[in-house]
Simulated scan of single mutants.
Amino acid sequence: MKTLIALCFLACAARAGLKWETTEVRLEVHPAQASASAVFRFSNAGKEAVTIGDVKVGCGCLAPQLAKRTYGPGEEGELTIRFDLGNRSGPQSKTTTVRTSDGQSVDLVVSGNLPKAYDVLPAMMRIGGTEKTKTARLVNPNPIPIRLLSATSSHKELSAELKTIREGFEYEVLITRKPAASNARAVIRIELEPPPGKSDAKILKLYAHAP
């Protein structure tokens, strides 16, 4: 009986596989931040090499990164999952499923409550034939200032001008319909100042239509 127990123990140890420090990472991000990375650390607790095979993300906004696929007994590693935040806000929970050569599977979760950088009102504007200009108001709901740098229109007949009302907290975007505009549609891209220590930031968007 003792021999059988010992054999079972050895068999379990041999197929112990990857041991993860945590299966959920909660992100804390700046409102203007464009992306964030969650790092999941692990070690091979078994007595045989383990290969990470399928890494299936539950959202196109996730991008997994591994230094290598196979880890020997006792070897440590980490899986980094980059989360493209886009203009998402509010509670978020994104899952990545990892399957290994020993038949094991684990769900890794990236979560967090993402703050909104700016409220944009309205986000869609229709500029009729007798109208020349319409205004969108942008308000920062956070206690920290976030500067807006520029507003750029995708259509030459619908120009965009950024106007500062209160630096870092309140702005207006003036969309002007030019005489030649006919059934013109434009995406207005509003560039934010990158957060401290970051090289990029979110891009806000609003939409204009001149029938």
Rank of each mutant, 00 (worst) to 15 (best):
residue 106 V to S: 10
residue 104 Q to I: 06
residue 183 N to G: 15
residue 151 A to P: 02
residue 95 T to R: 12
residue 128 G to L: 13
residue 99 R to C: 05
residue 133 T to P: 01
residue 75 E to G: 04
residue 90 G to C: 10
residue 157 E to T: 06
residue 164 T to D: 06
residue 93 S to R: 15
residue 158 L to S: 01
residue 131 E to Q: 10
residue 96 T to S: 09
residue 157 E to Y: 07
residue 84 D to K: 13
residue 178 K to R: 11
residue 116 K to L: 15
residue 79 L to Y: 01
residue 84 D to C: 10
residue 133 T to L: 02
residue 85 L to P: 04
residue 108 L to E: 06
residue 105 S to P: 03
residue 141 P to E: 14
residue 183 N to D: 11
residue 73 P to R: 14
residue 77 G to W: 10
residue 111 S to K: 07
residue 78 E to G: 03
residue 167 E to Q: 07
residue 131 E to H: 01
residue 179 P to I: 10
residue 187 V to Q: 08
residue 146 I to N: 11
residue 190 I to S: 04
residue 85 L to S: 02
residue 73 P to L: 13
residue 159 S to A: 09
residue 133 T to N: 10
residue 156 K to H: 14
residue 155 H to L: 00
residue 123 A to W: 13
residue 118 Y to V: 06
residue 187 V to R: 04
residue 146 I to R: 05
residue 105 S to I: 04
residue 110 V to L: 05
residue 75 E to K: 06
residue 182 S to V: 11
residue 112 G to T: 01
residue 141 P to N: 14
residue 120 V to I: 15
residue 88 R to K: 13
residue 107 D to I: 05
residue 138 L to M: 10
residue 153 S to L: 08
residue 172 E to L: 07
residue 143 P to Y: 12
residue 82 R to D: 13
residue 87 N to E: 15
residue 135 T to C: 05
residue 154 S to E: 01
residue 136 A to S: 14
residue 126 R to H: 09
residue 73 P to C: 15
residue 74 G to H: 11
residue 81 I to A: 00
residue 91 P to Y: 12
residue 147 R to W: 12
residue 92 Q to V: 11
residue 116 K to D: 11
residue 147 R to L: 15
residue 83 F to H: 13
residue 127 I to L: 08
residue 162 L to S: 02
residue 174 L to T: 00
residue 156 K to W: 08
